[in-house]
């Protein structure tokens, strides 16, 4: 039953305009006997203006999937489209330019350059791309993140939660086609984590952003519109409109 619903939703989501589509995505580390198949032919798509979470037990390949989707790592087989571009065919230079123009990142830790202030960190992707910041967007983002009085602070003067909010603001400012977030709340206490997650969800609702988030925390995943589950390098299930409980149940089932 669950499987058929999953199949149905997958078919439905592919019909919606997708921001990121992966087909037959395979990633193998090492060679011969030592080869580890981290991803074993994954078909998945992520809808625009939606907040999707990728979940799975440790070693399921969720981080690898994200790295491949974001063009940070090469794939062994299959392809990945971001918008109309097949990123598996791009050179390193083209990939870099694509990341610059179309992708935003929020990592678990070490998101900010210690030499730059919060505001400079937020503007950094635009400046690397040689673009001017949209001042209206800048104001709105800063307002939403609630960091106006912290803009001139260096990262070392900010709390962990504030640092992650600056990282999210930085990801938003260039209006990317998709933001990849890798365990963005992994290092935060639950209150700061909730703030960051609420903020991510708001940016989808209010700014029309597309976000793909890797997490192992059911609580965090429950902020998403849809959760996809990985096990042993395969996409095994998904839940739409998740609650912490439904995600938790699904995880228990997968680990059983």
């Amino acid at each position: 039953m669950v499987a058929s619903i999953a199949l149905l939703t997958m078919t439905m989501t592919t019909d919606v305009r997708a921001a990121v589509v992966a087909r037959g995505l395979t990633k193998v580390y090492g060679q011969g006997d030592a080869a580890v198949r981290a991803l074993r032919g994954i078909d998945v798509s992520f809808a625009t203006e939606a907040f999707t979470a990728i979940m799975g037990p440790s070693g399921s390949g969720k981080s690898t999937l994200m790295h491949c989707l974001a063009g940070l790592d090469t794939v062994s087989a299959g392809n990945v489209h971001i918008g109309d571009a097949d990123i598996t065919t791009l050179s390193d230079k083209q990939l870099t330019l694509l990341r610059r123009e179309r992708i935003g990142f929020v990592f678990q830790a070490f998101n900010l350059l210690p030499t730059l202030t919060a505001e400079q960190n937020i503007r950094l992707p635009l400046e690397i791309a040689g673009r001017q910041a949209d001042q209206v967007l800048m104001d709105r983002v800063v307002e939403t993140v609630g960091l106006r009085d912290r803009l001139s602070h260096k990262p070392s003067q900010l709390s962990g939660g504030q640092q992650q909010r600056v990282a999210v603001a930085r990801a938003l400012i260039s209006k990317p086609q998709v933001i990849f977030a890798d365990e963005p709340t992994g290092n935060l206490d639950s209150r700061s984590g909730a703030e960051v997650l609420a903020f991510l969800r708001r940016s989808v609702r209010e700014l029309g952003q597309t976000i793909v988030m890797v997490t192992h925390d059911p609580q965090a995943a429950s902020y998403a519109d849809r959760v996809v589950f990985l096990r042993d390098g395969l996409l095994v299930s998904e839940v739409t409109g998740p609650t912490p409980q439904s995600v938790h149940d699904m995880l228990l089932k997968l680990e059983a």
Partner: peptide
């Protein structure tokens, strides 16, 4: 190392 990787992820090219 991580700082450089971050910059590369944010779109700094190798030559840059």
């Amino acid at each position: 190392t991580r700082e450089s990787a971050l910059l590369r992820a944010l779109g700094l090219t190798r030559p840059q």
